Computed example of a mutant assay.
Amino acid sequence: MKKIIRTGRYLIIVLCLLISAACGNKDENPDNAEGSVTEISNQQANDQFIANQTKKQLIKWEAVTGVKAVQLDKELLVALEIRQRNKFQLEPLSKKATKALEKKFPGMDVTVTTDQKALLELGKLEDQFKNGKLDETKLEKQFKKIKQIDQDVY
């Protein structure tokens, strides 16, 4: 009888240790604790300074896990990746981001979207721009295409 009780105690201790070890890892994204932000090189003819500033500002928001942004002249196109628990607040978050960016960058035509397709396309556009595989005409064409995706959604 004592042997069964002793074995039960060991089993409880081992289970407690396993549970506490499994619950201890709270970091969802250990590589980048602030979220996913890729800065675009500004060595191109089209300077992406405002797009990079936008990413740094919006990634600090609790509901945002990723930001993609590209600037074309006086237009700024931003795609937000939102945490799962905030999915019912997509429109208010988009409006809040638009107001904040229009206030910070007056004179810019700001478009903010939370659409996943626009986020993926904008990510591809950023990669092409960063790698230098994109000239001004292709950038304008892709920019308008992504903006049209956003307008089709809303």
Rank of each mutant, 00 (worst) to 15 (best):
I19N: 04
S20K: 12
A21R: 11
A21Y: 15
A21S: 14
A22K: 09
A22Y: 15
A22L: 15
G24N: 14
N25V: 14
D27T: 10
E28W: 09
N29E: 11
A33L: 07
S36L: 11
V37A: 00
V37F: 00
S41W: 06
Q43C: 05
Q44E: 09
Q44W: 12
Q44C: 12
A45C: 05
A45R: 10
Q48V: 04
F49E: 11
F49H: 13
A51K: 00
Q53H: 05
K55W: 00
K55I: 01
K56M: 02
K56Y: 01
L58T: 01
A63L: 06
V64I: 15
V64D: 01
T65L: 07
G66Q: 09
L72Q: 12
D73L: 09
K74V: 13
K74F: 07
E75Q: 14
E75S: 14
V78L: 02
A79N: 03
E81V: 11
E81L: 13
I82Y: 03
I82G: 04
R83V: 08
R83Y: 06
Q84N: 14
Q84Y: 12
R85M: 12
R85N: 13
N86A: 14
K87V: 12
P92S: 04
L93V: 02
S94N: 08
K95A: 10
A97N: 02
A100H: 06
E102H: 10
K103P: 03
K103H: 13
K104R: 15
F105C: 03
P106R: 08
